[in-house]
Simulated assay, not measured.
Amino acid sequence: MGTVVDIAVAVVLIYAVLAILAGRPPLSGPAVAVFAVAEGTALWRAFTSGPGWLLWPAFAAAALWLANLVVGFTVMRRLRRTDPQVLREEVLRTATGAAPPQQLVLGVAPGGALMMQGVRPEGGAILAYGCPMCFVEEVVDTLVGPDAPVVAAYRRTLLGGTNRLFDLHRGVIDGRWHADLRPVRGPQRPYRPPYCPVHAS
C-alpha cells in the first residue's frame, strides 16, 4: 500500500512541476489543496518509513512554487492602482497621439492586474474598480472597431480556461489599429472576477 501512495504522490508532484514550468501553476482552491497534501505526504514519507527519493519531487515542486509566488508578488508591488477612466484615456492618448507606437499589448494576469506593453514603463497597472477584462475589451473595441471578432475569440479562449493577450499593431499603409491574440508567457489561467456578469463564469 505504501508503494502505491508513494507513486501517486510522486505523480502529483511531478505534474505540479510540469504545470509550473508550462506557466500553469496550481492556483485554484482544490488544486492548491491537492498540491499541499501531496507535498506534506511526500515529506512525511521521505523522513519516516518511505523512500528517500520522494524528497526530490517534493523539493523541486516547493522551490518552483515559492519562486512563482515571489515573482508574482514582486511584479504586483511595482504596479500602481489607477482609476479605469484615467487609465483608458492614457492608453488611448498613447495610441492616437502625434507619435503613436507601432504595437501595444494588453491583457489580464491571473491575479487581475493589467499587463500593458507600450503604455507604461512598469508594464501594467491595477484597476481601482471594475473588471480588467472588460477594460481591455473596451480599449480594443475603441481602437480596432466595435464588435471586433478578436474580442469574441478572446472570450472563447477564456471560457476554455486559457488566457490570451491582445496584440495591437498599426497598419503600415493606413496607420489603423489591428488586433490579434497571442499566448501569455507565464501562468495562463484566466482571471475570474466574481463581480463581472460577463467574465465571472
Rank of each mutant, 00 (worst) to 15 (best):
F135Y: 10
M116S: 14
C196N: 13
V136C: 00
F135S: 02
L143N: 12
V150M: 06
V140F: 04
T82G: 06
C134N: 14
V105R: 14
I14E: 06
P190H: 03
F47A: 11
E89V: 02
V91I: 14
L18E: 10
M115P: 03
T162C: 11
V86R: 15
L64V: 01
P187L: 01
T94M: 09
T74K: 12
R93F: 07
G175D: 03
V11R: 03
P57F: 04
L114G: 04
L92S: 03
A148G: 13
G123C: 11
V11L: 12
D83S: 09
A152R: 12
H169L: 11
A125E: 09
R156W: 03
A128M: 06
G171F: 06
V151C: 12
Y154S: 02
M116C: 04
V11P: 06
D83A: 09
P84H: 00
A153Q: 05
G52N: 13
L106V: 13
V71G: 03
A62P: 03
T74M: 13
P183T: 12
R93M: 04
L64I: 14
T142S: 11
E39V: 08
V11D: 02
G175F: 05
A38T: 03
L55K: 01
V70W: 15
V75F: 12
A22V: 05
M1D: 04
A16T: 12
R24M: 04
Y129L: 12
A67Q: 01
G29E: 01
G50N: 06
R189V: 05
G161N: 07
V119W: 02
V184S: 09
G186A: 15
F73D: 10
F166D: 04
V105A: 02
E39K: 11
A62E: 01
E137N: 14
G23W: 05
P30G: 13
W44R: 07
L13W: 13
Q102I: 07
I7N: 06
P57H: 14
S28D: 08
A46F: 00
P187G: 05
V139A: 11
L87P: 00
A125G: 08
E90T: 12
F166W: 09
D180W: 13
A63R: 00
L106Q: 01
V105G: 03
R192V: 06
V37G: 03
G118R: 02
G97R: 05
A61Q: 00
L87R: 00
A153H: 14
P149F: 13
S201M: 02
T41F: 13
G2F: 10
A128I: 09
G72V: 04
G118E: 02
P194W: 05
G52R: 12
F59W: 08
V91Y: 00
F166Q: 05
L158W: 13
A109M: 11
Q103N: 03
E89I: 01
V151A: 02
N68V: 14
M1F: 05
N163V: 08
D174S: 12
T94I: 11
R185F: 08
G130F: 10
R77C: 10
L104S: 11
A33Y: 11
L55E: 00
D141C: 07
Q102T: 13
G72T: 04
G40Y: 08
H199N: 02
P146G: 11
A58H: 01
V32P: 07
A8D: 07
I7P: 00
L21Q: 03
R120Q: 07
V75R: 10
A153R: 15
N68E: 10
P132T: 07
